[in-house]
Design a protein around this nucleic acid. Structure first.
Lengths: 230, 230
DNA sequence: TACCCCGTGACAAACACATGTCAATCATTA
DNA sequence: TAATGATTGACATGTGTTTGTCACGGGGTA
């Protein structure tokens, strides 16, 4: 079989898509380019790409809408490409389960780095299926025993703290919006993110060595949080 | 004739328009209320109001579009009423020659103050027709002689500085966007506003007593500049 | 009642962005 | 070539928003 990862680029600006095509091909990816949402959906069905790069503000259809449809039958990693002034749509896309975002203009280095992260989330989702323990650096979480160890010492987490940590870890590398977190933890939509901030602070105080330079729980300003196991 | 100034309020939120109606009537204005853009255009034609209050985000038509049409046959002062997240439209409206803006939510005091400014711009446009000299506090500008005096001392302005000053003074009280200024001074659109900043700084250094608290050249953050002769 | 957890308000810190300032460079012209 | 003015980049300042932190009070439970 072909070992190359297939990447579908849905981007109407030909200059940008061409540039992405060249760069990613060099990195040994197999690149498919779609200039419209319709073409993007078609190429997705026919080629089953591993990662999707979705530009917001396509000519024929709202990118958020495309993602909503895509998510009804696929959990493939989606990387949002947005310009300034599209923050709202960007957040909406992330709420719908986009994995990450990148803001135009960007350097190719950023792009390939984020694609590598998305790529790992692919492999992980397969490998993690039977896993019952997460471990990285000084942090260990045992799902079955509901135990959390820091430097091999068990620490106590309150119910919401634990639930939040599990949510973060099971989506490691992926950006989680405030809204998404609120919905997952408290079950309702559009709530205030004040509590989230407090719980993240509490978790950091218990898990991180240096809360001002977190190792695990990273802040995405204006967007939400992301768990990093690097 | 009726001495009352006629104000046309184009606003779809009945609660707000009612409140404005009450408040402005108390201030001895004659108030007309339109709930749609179409009604607004009709009331304008039939009543020739002196000042227009235009809310952006009307149900039946883009407010910027309405203003564009209005400006093809009238230079009546227009005060934009905008909410958060309508910055783009607000700027577009100001570019098209709206005189000022006010952001919801606002206090009635702010509104009446801005209407008084718009009102003065009416009287001025009549009075200024034959004027050849502008004078306010320590600043005097003689258009015919192209001379600028500060504390009765002639000062030197470079061509662009002078042109910019004249632009500001002939639109005193009115908000001028970066784009509008660039178009008027340099003749092209969508340029960088860096130069504008430098020229405003130069003008202030030459005209103002305290550049950190300007008397004449006021900054409208995120929008542009405004000349005030109070 | 004492304890634990959660939610909230108040405030501080960090951050992004717009504007102000300065200085170097470039173009024009006397 | 010297002088003036325009443009540009780098950096400082200011302003508004987002995030982090702390501490208080309510509600549930042993």
């Amino acid at each position: 079989m072909n070992e190359k990862l297939k990447i579908l680029v849905i981007e109407d600006d030909k200059y940008i898509s061409h540039f992405i095509d060249i760069s990613l091909s060099k990195e040994n990816y197999s690149v498919l380019v779609a200039e419209t949402a319709a073409e993007g959906m078609f190429l997705f069905s026919s080629h089953k790409p591993d990662v999707i790069l979705l530009d917001l503000g396509l000519p024929d259809r709202d990118g958020v809408d495309l993602l909503r449809e895509l998510r009804t039958f696929s959990q493939a990693p989606v990387l949002i490409v947005s310009a300034r002034g599209q923050e709202k749509e960007k957040i909406a896309a992330l709420d719908l389960g986009a994995n990450d975002y990148i803001t135009k203009p960007f350097h190719m280095g950023e792009l390939t780095a984020r694609i590598r992260v998305a790529e790992r989330s692919l492999q992980k989702s397969a490998a993690d299926a039977g896993e019952t323990v997460f471990s990285c650096d000084w942090l260990t979480v045992d799902y079955e025993k509901r135990r959390v160890l820091v430097d091999n010492e068990e620490i106590h987490l309150t119910p919401i703290e634990y639930k939040t940590l599990i949510l973060l870890i099971s989506n490691k590398g992926k950006v989680l919006t405030h809204n998404y977190i609120i919905k997952q933890i408290w079950g309702y939509d559009g709530g205030d993110s004040k509590s989230v901030r407090v719980f993240m602070a509490n978790l950091r105080r218990k898990l991180e060595k240096d809360t001002t330079h977190p190792r695990f729980i990273l802040t995405e300003v204006g967007v939400g949080y992301r768990f990093s196991d690097k």
